[in-house]
Design a protein around this nucleic acid. Structure first.
Ligand SMILES: [Mn+2]
Ligand SMILES: [Mn+2]
Ligand SMILES: [Zn+2]
Ligand SMILES: [Zn+2]
Lengths: 163, 163
DNA sequence: GATGGTATTGAAAATCATTATTAATAGTAA
DNA sequence: TTACTATTAATAATGATTTTCAATACCATC
C-alpha cells in the first residue's frame, strides 16, 4: 500500500454528487439544462431527450446518428460538447472499456455497475450495496471523501464459455 | 438489471490468468520474454527492466523516456508493442482513468485496486478481499466466469479537502 | 415584439494516444 | 557462419475527442 503522485492532471474536479436514485425522473429536460448553467437550445433538447429515453450505454457516435435523423444539421462536436458537460456534472456516466469509444448512460437513475463478456460484448448491470459500503470504508480509512467510482467486471458469459 | 448487446468487439479474449502473488519475483527478464513466446532483444530487456524495477503506474510515454536515456535508438512503437504483449498476457495491468493515456504496472505482484484523488492526482493502492469475493459471487450469480476487473475509487484526499 | 450582448453552434482543423506499414536489422537454430 | 524470420525504427495512418472560429441562436432588457 503506497501513495504516489501522478504527473497528469485530474480527470475532473467536480464534486457535486447527484442523488443515487432517479429523483430527476419527472424533471423536464429544460430544467436540467438550466441546472447545468447552460442555455436551452434545440440541439441540447434533442440530445438530452435521446440520452434520457433512448438506448442505454450509447457512444457519442450512436447518439449523433439518432440525433441527425430528427435534425440533420446538428454537429458532431455539439454532441461531444454536451455529453461532456453532462458527465462533468455526473448527469451521465462515462464508461470506458479498453481503448474503445466512451459509452454514456443517464446517471440520475439508480446507480449500478457492469459485468461485461469480453467475447460477445454482452453487458449485465448489477448493484451490490455491500461493495458500495466497503468502498466507503476504504476511502474513510485513507482520509478520502469519495465522489464516484468505476467497477467493471470482465469475463465470459455462460454461452461464451461453451464456445 | 438487464442484459444487452454491445455493437463493439471485445477488448481482449485473453483468459490465462497469472497467479495473484509475485511468483515471478526471481524469474529473470529473459525467461519471462521467452515465456511470452518472443525473442529476447535488447529493447525488450531494457523495457522489461524498467517495467519491473522502475516507478509504478507509468505511461508508455514515461517508459519511453526512461528507455531512451539508456539507449536513444529505441523506438516509441516498440515500447507500445511490447507493453501490449505484456498486458495481453496479464504480465502488466493496464489502468485507464478518463480519457488519459493508459498507465501500466507490473501485475505479477499482488493484486490491488486504486483510490485516486481527482484534484492532486495522488494514488493510494489498496486490497480488499471481501470485495474480491463479492465480485466472484456476482459473476457466479449471472453465470459468468471472471477474468479480470477494474475497481477505481475517485474522490478528494485529506489535504485536498482543505483546499 | 425588437435589439444587443454573449453563449452556442457547425464545420473543419488540430490533437493525442495508439496502431499499422515497411524496408532494414538482429536473434537464433542449424 | 549462414539463412530464415521475428523484430525494429521511423513514419504514416487511424480513430476518438477537442479546439478553433466565424456565423447564429438564446434571452434579458427594453
Ligand atoms: Mn449501465
Ligand atoms: Mn497500482
Ligand atoms: Zn459472451
Ligand atoms: Zn488530493
Amino acid at each position: 500500500m503506497e501513495t504516489e503522485q501522478s504527473s497528469y492532471l485530474p480527470v475532473s474536479q467536480e464534486q457535486k454528487a447527484l442523488p443515487k436514485n432517479d429523483s430527476y425522473k419527472n424533471v423536464p429536460d429544460k430544467k436540467i439544462i438550466r441546472e447545468l448553467g447552460l442555455k436551452v437550445t434545440q440541439q441540447r433538447l434533442l440530445i438530452l431527450d435521446i440520452v434520457r429515453n433512448g438506448p442505454n450505454h450509447f457512444t457519442a457516435q450512436e447518439i449523433y446518428e439518432v440525433v441527425t435523423e430528427k435534425n440533420p444539421d446538428v454537429g458532431f462536436a455539439t454532441v461531444y460538447r454536451f455529453l461532456k458537460k453532462l458527465s462533468e456534472q455526473h448527469f451521465v456516466t462515462e464508461v470506458r472499456m479498453g481503448g474503445m469509444p466512451a459509452r454514456y448512460e443517464w446517471a440520475a437513475k439508480k446507480h449500478h455497475d457492469h459485468l461485461t463478456c469480453t467475447r460477445c460484448g454482452s453487458i449485465v448491470e448489477f448493484e451490490n450495496q455491500k461493495i458500495e459500503d466497503l468502498q466507503e470504508q476504504i476511502a474513510d480509512r485513507h482520509g478520502f471523501r469519495l465522489t464516484h467510482h468505476i467497477l467493471e467486471l470482465y469475463g465470459l458469459c455462460g454461452e461464451c464459455q461453451n464456445q
